[in-house]
């Protein structure tokens, strides 16, 4: 039993931690730079364990994030689905890519994620704050290599840090 659920323990723990980090108070200065924790871990697990974590996990995490942030129910879910879909489709190629290439790919996915959120806000006629919306891209790009290696670098051991 323990052996059956054991491979899921670390991913589930990172999902909970990502949700907690998404709402932890950062102060007014830092809050716009809050990294996109949930997309980062979802992309990681979609690439590392595509057979276990895919679109359903993305949907569930999106709804949880909507509950926590009080946005329209389904807003984050809709924005997360395409990027996890891309990660699943490209996971074999991303796994063998160099770290900087993976980072660029992830940042491009996050651009799509933020664009979708931005678009949903526009359709829902919510006030849009301006270019500072894109600040999380910076912190997320810096954090991605750390997240990637902390979680095991897709389980491969031939990763070169170049």
């Amino acid at each position: 039993m323990i052996a059956r659920i054991q491979p899921f323990l670390l991913p589930l723990a990172t999902f909970v931690v990502a949700l907690a980090l998404s709402i932890i108070p950062l102060g007014d200065r830092m809050a716009p730079f809050r990294p996109d924790w949930v997309p980062l871990v979802l992309i990681y697990w979609a690439i590392a364990k595509p057979q276990h974590f895919g679109l359903l996990a993305a949907f569930a995490m999106g709804i949880a994030l909507d509950m926590l942030t009080g946005s329209l129910l389904g807003r984050h879910a809709l924005a997360l689905l395409p990027i996890v879909y891309l990660s699943l489709r490209l996971h074999l190629r991303i796994r063998v890519a160099l770290v900087w290439q993976v980072t660029v790919t992830v940042v491009l996915m996050l651009v799509l994620y933020h664009f979708l959120l931005f678009w949903i806000d526009g359709v829902g006629q919510r006030a849009i704050p301006g270019p500072i919306t894109w600040a999380p891209l910076l912190s997320s790009a810096l954090l991605w290599p750390i997240v990637m290696f902390a979680l095991g670098g897709f389980g491969r051991d031939n990763v070169k840090a170049t």
Binding site: F59, G74, A77
Partner: peptide
Amino acid sequence: LAAVSLTMMIL
């Protein structure tokens, strides 16, 4: 799933 999310948002 995207359709479900969209429906939820509209509701």
